[in-house]
Structure formats: C-alpha cells, structure tokens
Design a protein around this nucleic acid. Structure first.
Lengths: 346, 346
DNA sequence: GTATTTTGCGCAAACGTTTGTTTGTTGGGT
DNA sequence: ACCCAACAAACAAACGTTTGCGCAAAATAC
C-alpha cells in the first residue's frame, strides 16, 4: 500500500493547479451554475474519482450548519417493536437523503440524556425518539429552542412536541374487555415504565374497562415498572402468589407477557387454563408459542413512517407540523392465551 | 423563549472579554497546565454552565482529526444475536469514552457500502462490523489503508482483518452429531447467506459430521440463503415436500428455525415427532415455544465485548492487534425439538 | 478601435475548535 | 535603577468545506 496523503479538495486543486473553490463547486454539482468549463469539470471529476475523493462531512457540516443527519433514539432495540420502528424510520430517512445515528438508551434516563447531548454536539438536523420516561427537561429544552424533534410511541403531553403513537387507552380497553367478556374479574396488570404515556394510558384503559363493568379497582393488581421480560417474570410471580390469585394477566408489553408466561410455567400454572394472558405489542412469533399469545397489535410500520415523515416535513419546511399528533388504532389479535372462566368462582 | 445566539467559545470569550484560547483550554481541563488564574477559570466555567455550552464536535473533530466515535454496522438488529452484540459493544465503547453510530445494513450489500461511506465521511475513529457477505472490496480497501476495523461474527478470511467469531464449524458439527445420535439420516440444512463465513463453516461442519458417519451428502438437502425467518419458512417447505422427507432440519439461525417451525405447523407436521429441528444461535424465548427449541448457543456477550476491546486496543495503541482472531466455543442447548427416530425407517 | 458583456476561475472569509508561539505585566533579586 | 523569572492571557494558524465577490481575459457590440 502506498502511503498517499489524504485526499481533500485542496489536494485535488493543487494537483490540477486550480483553486479549491472550483473543485468544490464542481464536486457539489454546481459546476454549470458557476459556468465552469466542461473540460475542467471532466478533469476534476475524473481525478476525484480516481483518487477516491469523498467529502469530509465534519468540515461540510461545520460550514453549512447542516449535517443531513438525524438522531434516532430508541429505548431498547432488542424489543421488536422498536427495532421495527427504527428500521422503517431509517429507511425513510435514507430515502430522503438523510443518514441516521441510532442510539439505544437501554431504557435508562441517564444514557438518554448523554445520547441527546451526543447528538446535539454532533449537530444532527433533527431527532426522532421514544423517550424513556415521563419527565425529561432536556427534551423540553431542546424543543423549546426550536430544534426539530418528534416523538414516537412514547410522548410527553405537557408540551406540544409532535408525536405519533398508538391509541393505548383504547387498545388496553379492548384487551381488558376481551378478558372481562371471558368471565375474568381478577385481572392483574403488568405495567411498563409508570410515568411513560403508553403505560399510563393503558392503565387508564384498564381501569375504565373495569369500572364500566362494576369491577372494583385494586391497586395491588398493578405490578412491575418496565417494559422488559424479566420485569414481567417477577411481577407475574407476585401476582400469582396472591391468596386470591388473578385469573388473567394483562401485560403492557409482549416481552413482559413472555416473562409472565415463563413464570407461569415454573409455577406449574397452565396458560390459559389456569391463567389467561394478553400482551400489548405484536410479537413476531406469538403463534409459535406453547400457548399462542393473544396480543394487541400496533401498526409499527406506520408508527415509524409517520413519525419520520413528520420530522422530514419539519426539516423541509422549517416549521413544526401544525397537526402535532397522530394516534393510530390498535388491533386485538385473538390467539389462544385467553380462556373462559366459569362464573361460579367468586 | 428568548432567542439567544448560539453559545460557542467565541461567544463566551466575547462576553467575558477574554480570548477564545483560554476558554478552550479551561473547558478542556487544561487550565492549570497553562497556568490560567483560578479566578478566570471559575468565571469561564460558571458562565459556560449557565449558558449551557457544549462543544461543537464537528469543529472539534475537524481540528483534532479524531472524533471519538466508532461506527457499528450490524446486518439485522431485529435478530437478537446482533442486537445483543450491539448492546454489549456500545456499552464497552461508552465506558471508554467513545460514542457509537449504529447502522443496520439490512443484510444488503449496497446499504452496507453506503453506510461504510457514511461512517468514513463522518470521520469515525474505527469500525466494528458484521459484514453482509463474502466479497467486500470496500472493507478490504478500508483495512488496507490502515483504518482500524474489526469484524465480529462474520469475517473475511482472505485478509488479516482482526475478528472475533464463534467456532461455527464445531458448533454445527455438534448439532448435526446430536441429530445423528438420535438416529437421523436425512437431515436438511437451512443455510444462511452462502458466502458468509458462519454459513459456510456451518455447512462444512454439517458435511463433516455426515461423512464421519457414512451418510452421503445430498446437495438438494441444502436450501435457503438468508439468516431470516421467512427464508427458513420457504426452505423448510421445499425440504419437507421431498418424496423422501428429511426427518430433521438443521438451521443456520434460530429465526430461520422459527420460520421452519411455522412451516411445519402449517403442513401439519409435528415437531419433533415428525421432524426434528435445531437452530444455530440462542433464542431468548426458546423454552416458551410449543416445542422448546434445541439450539447451539453463541457467547453473544463475549463476542461483542471481545471485538470491541480489540478495536479499543487498536485505537489506543495505534497498531492492529497481533493476535488477529478470536474464536469462541459454542454450546449445545438441548431442549425438546429433537426426537429419536426409529432406525427401522430406511 | 473602444466599450461592454460574457466566460472561467481565484481570493478570502467563515464555520468552531485546538495549540504552538508571542506578548505584556508583575514581582523579586541584585 | 536594571534584569530576569514567573505568570496570565492573547495571537494566529490550522482542520476541510462553501460561497459572495472580484478580476482578468476573451468574446461581442457599437
């Protein structure tokens, strides 16, 4: 390998004995606009290609105050809902000439804060994120400075930050209703991060469904605090050890439902004969499970595409979208994890 | 919100009526070394904090020719093996003061090429990647220019690019042996991307195991070409429709095994009674499946940590690691997807 | 043949840092 | 009174681009 000096515009200019400005203009496609001769254009383009020139985005971004990069913050890419959102968003960004910096905040507020700083310092043009939890001063500060940011899945309701999310209230209501229709009266609720919108809205749907059917709400029935499988595992154990054991579990995430399923297995409780189970979010392999899991499916593709389009529009127009929120319907996918319970018991 | 001008070092300097150089030195912790008075240091630090100054990494990277950023290229983050590798690598990088740009190449060579360019143009300090396929001129070119790059899981063997991977040959051998020990003689092989090392090495293990037991190799038994669930689904359908139906399927990825499982279900073939199944890679919820899946587990954490450490060492020392490769053992996790087959048949 | 336009390109500043070098100001020693 | 350290901070160049403006030469117009 020949140790050749880094190939920059200055470098090319020196070699061709012209100035860097014409190199820049040619290589950014403005050759014609600045009436640079065909011959020079050819020469520059050819040697640029030969030397393998690529523009230094650091310098470019610095000069242009624009990086054509978007920050994408996901709380947990190992959760399929987020990996699917990430994928569709990234694709949309790429299609529009933006590249993406993806950060996994691991559902950790501190990491989220760091990542936000990282992205800001790297001068991304905008941010698409699913915040970890409820209160986030940094996010609000960013928004208040007019920085383009849109939220997906999880959102903050005390500020007009644009978002696209699912109808978590209705989805949960539908799911709990499904359980009630099957005779369940003792329904455990495995919540996600409590001060996140999806979790609180789902809880609201749960409570409303109970209330509409004259079932008293029992705070002890609400357990957990993360959207993770192990959290579901632990919470299910707590709930299923109650003297008056719930006959059904409603989980705020499908992975937590899987954790609960594991807990059931270990406690020798059959699903759904002994305990029925519903999970929010679709799970790709739900139908392959020992007990195919009944789920409340979100439109993951539409979530990612809607949110990214909102952000792209913002970046294009320079103004935040007026219709600041989109709420997508959910769909109950009935499989086999919910059984009818005889009304005889209690 | 007050429209305040962007807060830069120059800005702070003007406000405090000092020069930018002292601001820079103070804010990068070199105040003492350049004997800047305690008083000035305090003043600068306080107003910097008050104004919420953060350094512009574009400018910093441009000046320093170092960005403290590492590019992480994964072929498919929705596949748990890669999301786990990504997570452990990202954590290791963060711990060492590096931030990470994660790109999902979607198993697409073209996207991979673009992403590589993107990372290069953004002046990342190094790259950790699992290449999509076999031939990749860009990767070699990058390596040959002395750029720090290490491969994980999938590697290229015609160049001395450092990598850490699993012992795919032995893992597959063990798995196939397990099948043979259970009396299987017709074993379908669901391969991954054919010219990727993991797939080719696993195929080699498969063939060796067959040969060691006097089972003739039949090319028709090798199907598929991606590490994805739908690919496993299709390939399984092909194999299971053979007149002489295989009694077992060995899959190069657990998700493809799940696809195969789905195919079995739809064809009314029971696993493992009618067809046994083994999947490479651990699958987090393998034990919750209708038929708990027997797998060949890789040490995902060690893969990510080993590879990232290799890269970090390279960046620290400035030299590529001398021991250019690490190969980790796999472990057969026997669950319930392999059944004994009566030797009566054929 | 002079005045004007067109053509093709170069100059230099700016983006926000970092850092080697220089400058000015004290205070102490003689 | 004079020299020399030590101290505190400013200057200026550099990193690789982009772009408004300017300028010489060639082409056209009168």
């Amino acid at each position: 390998m020949i140790k050749q000096s880094k190939v920059t515009m200055k470098n090319l200019a020196d070699e061709l004995e012209i100035s860097v400005s014409v190199v820049s203009r040619i290589l950014s496609g403005k050759g014609a606009a600045y009436r640079i001769s065909e011959e020079t254009q050819k020469r520059v383009q050819e040697t640029a290609a030969k030397r393998g020139f690529t523009v230094n985005q650091l310098a470019r971004g610095l000069r242009l105050q624009r990086t054509h990069t978007i920050g994408l913050l996901m709380p947990d890419i190992s959760n399929s809902i987020f990996s699917m959102i990430a994928r569709s968003a990234e694709k949309a960004f790429r299609r529009n000439g933006y590249s993406t910096i993806l950060c996994d905040t691991a559902n950790d507020g501190e990491v989220e804060k760091q990542a936000l700083g990282l992205l800001h310092d790297r001068s991304v043009d905008g941010i698409l994120m699913a915040p970890v939890g409820g209160e986030s001063q940094y996010i609000k500060a960013i928004f208040n400075h007019g920085f383009p940011i849109v939220l997906v899945d999880r959102f903050l309701d005390d500020l007009k930050i644009p978002y696209v999310t699912s109808n978590n209230y209705q989805g949960a209501y539908d799911g709990v209703l499904h359980l009630i229709d099957h005779g369940h009266r003792h329904i455990g609720f495995l919540q996600g991060i409590p001060d996140s919108k999806p979790s609180s809205e789902r809880l609201r749907g749960y409570r409303q469904a109970l209330q509409d059917h004259q079932i008293p709400f029992d705070a002890r029935m609400v357990q957990g605090g993360k959207f993770e499988d192990h959290d579901g595992y632990i919470s299910a154990q707590i709930l299923l050890n109650y003297a008056e054991r719930p006959t059904a579990l409603f989980s705020c995430s499908s992975v937590a439902a899987l954790g609960a399923m594991k807990a059931c297995m270990e406690m020798n409780l059959r699903v759904p004969e002994d305990v029925s189970l519903i999970g929010f979010d679709e799970y790709p392999y739900a139908s392959l499970l020992a007990t195919p899991l009944t789920t409340i499916a979100q439109q993951t593709g539409a979530l990612g595409e809607g949110a990214s389009q909102m952000l792209l529009d913002w970046l294009d127009s320079g103004n935040p979208p007026e219709s600041a929120s989109v709420v997508l319907d959910t769909e109950l996918h009935v499989r086999a994890s919910v059984a009818r319970v005889s009304n005889s018991e209690k």
